[in-house]
Design a protein around this nucleic acid. Structure first.
Lengths: 414, 414
DNA sequence: TTCTTTATTTTGATACGCGGATTAAATCTG
DNA sequence: CAGATTTAATCCGCGTATCAAAATAAAGAA
């Protein structure tokens, strides 16, 4: 814990104000004063500083006239042009990149449907570098306009060090991807688990805006877990993001290990489904997505074995989720998976097994919802992660400090 | 998060100083300045206030002469008489109570070997009340000398509300034990999971003094889990302490549920061992402790089935611990169990299964150690929990605020 | 135009931490 | 034994923070 000095004090209150402005759209100073429990005087001082730094702007007058007499409120909002950041999402078969402004509005995006799976880290870094440069220039910007970049990827990530301990998309272990990209692009780069990004996105502009504790589970090629706990992203002891795929849900048996990744990921389900699909889909080289949808079709058509297979996967995931609920007691669990999570043959068993495995004292604490995220959503989460740093949350391990003074362009002062 | 004002600032720094004094015994102001990163001026001001409040005292001169010239340092330490607190540990077959001073030195203790198992909550509250009054008076104190009390008990506890959601020692659910005792004793009472207390005790005066992230697992009648994460006790969303017994480690099968409590607790092990022991111990009414030690004897003597039984329990616990390590990545895991944890036939399989189930990227992060706690240790943890509140940690949900101005008696000013 | 009402800013008071100068209390030196 | 030296702790003044109260600004209402 840092020592408390006036600077920290100001940083904390400044962050409160910024956060309130971000969350509650255009707000007046009086409202901010109520929202933050700060005195009007202090709010005035802080907003003056923020206006001075061009991080916020007063809303053009003539906007919403609040019925009533008195002096009209001046509404304040984030200055979209206060900074630009880049978000990158790495998946096995696609690189998605987006440039956003300070409000996390997407200014330009780029999707590269490339299999980066098992490529060298440096090759991937090359691809990302090129993609980012291209995306930035397509948005009519220079790299020097960019204040920061965040890369989300599946696997175990040590955010503080910028190191990816292990990921399905890297052959290597312990890849220092963050520093590598920082050097290539000349811009501060952070990396994080992809699911953390989407968890932050849900918290900032998704379904979980009001909720400070929730779990995010993504079922894709691999399994991801993001935890928001007490309003902060949860990380293990070294800032390590936990990997849901590493959770054990069965005793390792003859059929394979008991890791959840071996039971409920797309990859695992497809591997098991292979013999079942052989009759219907001779093309074993079809994309996983196609093969998965074939499996779902077969299940929907009533193929017992396909149904059982999906049910087994759902149950395994439910087992793990029940354990997580027992630990974190989150009021909400958000589950997503490009295809799997859309099938009742997967979701129903999942729900049932969560209910069955949850201790009675925790029954009904967690509301389990399914949700599909576009690539844009992930990437917006990545951008949000960088913005969060720019806002300057003074507590928690914010990771490497980004430049505080963001390059400015427009913004009209009072 | 609270809003930051000068008061919070001072509270934070004051806590830093108090914490440093607690941890590093008698220290001088210069040392405090280095330890806390505060300027000598500030340390001087804060210690002056603490001396004024009689929370700390200067060590009698003539103490350790630090070789060197200059003006000698004045060593400061906690004022033992600044407050008295009571710690209570509730177990199925025993109530342990201790009164400590402000340094967590035990002034008097009392052990009531009573089976409170399945008693009414109000009966138990009666017993605790009487015990506390007795223990306090035996220590030559009045109840009015007591600043606070903390009760530790197994099960799921919602500390903030003082409610025990569910516990093996209460027949009822949702027992508002804290408020009930507060009213009876006229003293602020908090309750917490017993394992949290022992985790705090390890952090304050045990093996984990230098470590800010570790797990504590207790294998007794029931299973307990305490988590220290980032230097703070980890709690679920509503301040709920997670219960290790509720973790699922197997699919529920014909042999029973897959809850860890049904597989690795003393109770579960004994239930399974019952048929094996029948030949050797006809007295089925013997204490669990005796029967357990008989089981261990049999295993040590080479009884295959007893060995297998212990191994199965150890493996199940290892399974759960591996999952917890995957989540929290703690450098240390402390395991205790009155008897089970002392047997290699239990511990070895546990270690093996942790190693087997842990993902390779996390192999060797956690050092697993066995540890036996005396009842005094638990109770000292309970006292420490109350002291922690008195010290006034300004962050985190410290629960109900205790009186800030503690009753004073001695303490010699400069 | 003048009052009323509400939002924001200005003013004055207070609390805090910090750096530099100062005092305190010992040892060392001659 | 007196003065120099050294190290610890405190005092003084500055800058900054919040906050309460008073003052000002900007509207509508009379």
């Amino acid at each position: 814990m840092k020592t408390a000095d006036p600077e920290l004090m100001r940083a904390i209150n400044r962050f409160h104000v910024m956060d309130a402005i971000r969350r509650f759209g255009p707000v007046s100073r009086v409202e901010l004063s109520q929202l933050t429990d700060l005195s009007p005087t202090t709010v005035s001082a802080i907003t003056a500083a923020l206006l001075d730094d061009k991080l916020i702007v007063p809303l053009q007058v003539g906007a919403l006239r609040d019925l009533g007499r008195g002096r009209p409120r001046v509404m304040l909002k984030l200055n979209p042009d206060a900074a630009r950041v880049v978000g990158v999402k790495l998946a096995a078969d696609q690189i998605t990149i987006a440039v956003t402004n300070f409000c996390a509005d997407v200014l330009g995006s780029l999707a590269l449907p490339i299999r980066i799976d098992r490529q060298t880290a440096s090759v991937i870094a090359d691809l990302v570098e090129d993609g980012v440069r291209r995306c930035v220039s397509d948005a009519g910007l220079e790299m020097s306009d960019i204040s920061g970049l965040c890369v989300g990827l599946p696997g175990v990530v040590e955010r503080a060090a910028g190191v990816c301990r292990q990921s399905p998309i890297f052959g290597e272990r312990d890849v220092a991807f963050g520093p590598s990209l920082t050097e290539r692009l000349g811009v501060p780069v952070t990396i994080d688990s992809d699911v953390n990004l989407v968890a932050l996105a849900e918290h900032w502009f998704g379904q979980a805006r009001e909720i400070n504790d929730f779990l995010v589970v993504s079922v894709e090629r691999s399994l991801g877990l993001g935890i928001l706990h007490n309003g902060e992203l949860f990380r293990g002891a070294n800032g390590l993001g936990p990997d849901l795929g590493d959770m054990m849900v069965r005793l390792p048996g003859p059929g394979g290990g008991g890791r959840l990744a071996d039971l409920a990921s797309e990859t695992a389900v497809l591997a098991e489904a292979e013999p079942l699909l052989r009759n219907y889909d001779d093309d074993a080289t079809a994309t996983p997505k196609r093969r998965l949808s074939l499996l779902l079709q077969r299940a929907a058509a009533g193929d017992e074995r396909c149904v059982a297979l999906l049910a087994a996967a759902g149950e395994a995931l439910g087992f793990a989720i029940a354990n997580l609920i027992a630990l974190f007691a989150p009021p909400k669990v958000i589950i997503s998976g490009r295809l799997l999570a859309t099938s009742e043959h997967f979701v129903e068993p999942l729900r049932r097994s969560v209910a069955a495995f949850l201790p009675p004292s925790l029954a009904d604490v967690a509301d389990i919802v399914m949700r599909e995220w576009s690539d844009g959503f992930w990437v917006r989460g990545a951008a949000a992660m960088t913005l969060r740093d720019l806002y300057g949350a003074p507590w928690g391990t914010t990771g490497p400090a980004l430049l505080r003074e963001a390059p400015q362009t427009g913004g009209e002062p009072l």
